[in-house]
């Protein structure tokens, strides 16, 4: 039955040498000479039309879209680079500021320390001076005391010597005794 309907469908086209009365192919349809011209004719037209569609419209359009996309991507990457660079810059600036502040703080601390040290030194020097003045004064007092003590010793020695001479029965010459005692004390 299938072949019957098939045949009926194609039967009218049986005028060709390549198709039998049932509409079936005689031999290989690919080798049927009388169809070749038709196929080649329409194929050439088709190829030309496809070529024109592709070369004139489609391919330039796709190429431009791809180029545009490439451009967009490149731009975006460049923008990202720029942003990254800026971020790095601001970080560097921040670090710089931090370092500056730290240095300044250090300088202030140093300065304060130096000031205190200078004050301290000055006070110290003053104190030293006062101490040494006091020491000199004391020295002077001591030497004065020593000198007066020496004098007293001389007087006592003279008196003692005079008393000794008198006790021994001599007649003491004051001047001689004073002289002798002074000599002996210096001696």
């Amino acid at each position: 039955m299938a072949t019957e309907t098939h045949g009926a469908e194609n039967a009218a086209a049986a005028a060709s040498a390549c198709v039998d009365s049932h509409g079936s192919a005689v031999g290989m349809p690919q080798l049927c000479g009388e169809w070749i011209g038709n196929q080649v004719f329409w194929l050439v037209i088709t190829l030309v039309v496809i070529y024109l569609i592709l070369a004139k419209i489609a391919l330039p359009r796709i190429a431009s879209v791809l180029a545009e996309r490439q451009g967009t991507i490149t731009n975006d990457i460049a923008a990202a680079e720029e942003l990254k660079r800026k971020a790095e810059e601001s970080e560097a600036a921040y670090q710089q500021a931090l370092a500056d502040a730290r240095a300044q703080a250090q300088a202030i601390a140093q300065k304060t320390r130096d000031d205190i040290k200078a004050d301290l030194d000055a006070e110290m020097a003053k104190a030293d001076e006062a101490i040494s003045a006091k020491a000199a004064e004391s020295e002077k007092a001591i030497s004065a005391i020593r000198a007066s003590a020496m004098e007293n010793v001389e007087i006592v020695a003279k008196e003692t010597a005079a008393a000794l001479v008198a006790a021994l029965g001599g007649k003491a010459d004051d001047a001689k005794i004073a002289n002798a005692v002074s000599n002996r004390l210096k001696g």
Partner: peptide, 13 residues
């Protein structure tokens, strides 16, 4: 069995 494997390649108006 009837095969017409080549019928599909027939050129017709």
């Amino acid at each position: 069995l009837v095969f017409h494997p080549m019928d599909q390649f027939i050129v017709k108006p």
